[in-house]
Design a binder for these strands. Structure first.
Length: 506
DNA sequence: TTAGGGTTAG
């Protein structure tokens, strides 16, 4: 910067140039100041409603032109960014094309790419795929060099539905012609989108393309693909394990969550032994399996009937310093029940409390079911009381267990009591042994009680099956008229259901 | 040194 300090030098300058010395710093500062003023004026006018309807130019565009012209400066990219965002926020999409035309034809600056990728994203989220593609192709016309940034935005927009997905190859070709180089991030966007819409086969194909093109594959992509594959319905263990091997060859080191996903897949598919192998593989890879992994494998072992291995596994997790939680105990107690050792299960319940692990509704349901199964009904009643004292509420499952257990042990009246309680609490379920209870009551000359139950059921829109109706009609109870009229009314509404059930009874 | 993932039954 030139400084004119003495009077002499200033007069020399004036004589030579006949004007005051020009300071580029001052001019720049002045321009920035004017632009700021214009921007402020634009923001103020944008919030005001338009004075009159302008069919061609949107109000904000006129404000922009006006605000900047009164300060005698050129509009800035920031100003365009502002008006585009304002139009989007106020849902005035129909004005966006005229703003873009103005930006293309009347300005000289190079707008930042973010303006266009923002609009591409907006078009995508408002189902304007065609507009998004057109804008992407048009970016060079705005004196802006499109990069992988816009491409990735467009790809993620297209991947939101299968119609857009079909357009991806075309866009890839177009982007090559536009001199945009695909990057790792582009593949990541594509693979993420494919996984999101559960097209894991295509996602794996993309991974192969990535590898063939010499790109490095990151852990995030591998984990995502593996987890997506594990969630697929018709996938075999060979496919999952084979894919994991392929990923390893690419340099992928599976982490806790990756192993956890594989274990869950195997256990859900009743492949407990394979899950145990994976758990051991984790240890070989020096990853200490956590309580989630152990609980899942323990569950798998019990499902496979490998009770000895389950015991070993339980000891092992304790040895590793892991603390079993209510999930682990529930799995283990369920295993004890499956081995017909409900006493050990009840003991385990007590141990849980000592080890400060609070049993939950599921713990009690598991034990109640087994106690009912072996006919230990008084112990089941004790446990039910204990639940109440501990403030653990009973759910539909609890009632189902108790009603089924009591009914199959011939305790029809008690089962009826639970049934009524479940109805009162609104915990009704088709699987409750309604017919068994009604038939049982009728057989025990308790058709009066059966009728009472029937009335309650009808008032709650619950209808028993044909077997129960037949039983009621055949029984020598009084108020048979009620049975008949209710039955006739019900036949009117669900004739097919009843006739199907009748056919089954016959 | 985050969260994420795990249990009965249907």
């Amino acid at each position: 910067m030139v400084r004119y300090t003495s009077k002499k030098s200033i007069s020399f300058f004036l004589r030579k140039y006949r004007k005051w010395p020009y300071s580029p710093y001052k001019a720049r500062w002045h321009r920035i100041f004017s632009q700021q003023q214009a921007m402020q004026s634009l923001k103020q006018s944008a919030t005001k409603p338009p004075q009159q309807e302008e069919p061609i130019k949107p109000h904000v565009l006129s404000s922009l032109i006006h605000s900047f012209s009164i300060y005698n400066v050129e509009p800035t990219p920031k100003a365009y960014d502002f008006i585009i965002k304002t139009l989007v926020k106020t849902s005035q999409f129909h004005y966006i094309p005229s703003v873009l035309d103005h930006l293309e034809n009347f300005e000289n600056f190079e707008p930042p790419e973010s303006i266009f990728s923002y609009l591409i994203e907006v078009y995508g989220s408002t189902d304007k795929t065609h507009e998004a593609i057109e804008l992407f192709s048009r970016i060079p016309k705005f004196r802006c060099v499109p990069s992988v940034y816009s491409l990735n935005t467009l790809i993620s927009v297209l991947c939101r539905n299968s119609k857009g997905l079909n357009l991806v190859p075309e866009i890839m070709l177009k982007s090559q012609a536009m001199n945009i180089r695909m990057e790792e991030s582009t593949f990541q966007v594509l693979i993420t989108a494919l996984c999101r819409i559960k097209k894991v086969g295509s996602a794996i194909e993309m991974l192969n393309c990535m590898v063939n093109d010499g790109f490095t594959v990151n852990t995030e992509i591998c984990s995502m693909l593996l987890s997506c594959l594990c969630e697929q319905k018709d996938v075999t263990k060979f496919e999952v394990m084979g894919f994991l091997e392929e990923l390893r060859k690419l340099g992928f080191f599976p982490g806790m969550m990756d192993y956890s996903n594989v274990i869950r897949f195997l256990v859900k598919g009743k492949m407990g032994v394979d899950a145990l192998h994976v758990l051991n593989q984790m240890k070989l890879d020096r990853i200490k399996p956590d309580i989630f992994c152990y609980t899942m494998v323990l569950h798998g072992m019990i499902e496979d009937g490998e009770y000895l291995k389950a015991d070993e596994l339980f000891d092992e997790l304790l040895l590793f310093g892991l603390v079993p939680d209510v999930y682990t105990y529930n799995v283990y107690i369920n295993g004890l029940c499956e081995q017909n050792n409900v006493e050990a299960g009840v003991k385990m319940l007590a141990s849980m409390e000592e080890l400060r692990c609070k049993p939950n509704l599921i713990t009690y349901n598991i034990l109640l079911k087994q106690l009912c199964k072996v006919g230990e009904l008084s112990k089941a009643a004790d446990l039910l009381r204990e639940m109440g004292l501990k403030g653990i509420g009973q759910n539909m499952q609890t009632y189902r267990i108790m009603i089924d257990g009591l009914a199959s042990n011939g305790k029809i009246v008690e089962a009826c009591g639970f049934f009524e309680e479940a109805m009162d609490k609104g915990l009704l379920n088709q699987s409750l042994k309604v017919d068994d209870i009604i038939c049982g009551l009728c057989q025990r000359d308790l058709s009066c009680k059966a009728l009472e139950l029937l009335e309650k059921m009808v008032s709650k829109n619950v209808s028993p099956g044909a077997r129960a109706w037949k039983s009621l009609l055949l029984s020598s109870g009084f108020k048979l008229g009620f049975v008949e009229t209710t039955l006739i009314n019900l036949v009117g509404t669900s004739q097919t259901q009843l006739s199907n059930e009748n056919a089954a009874v016959e």
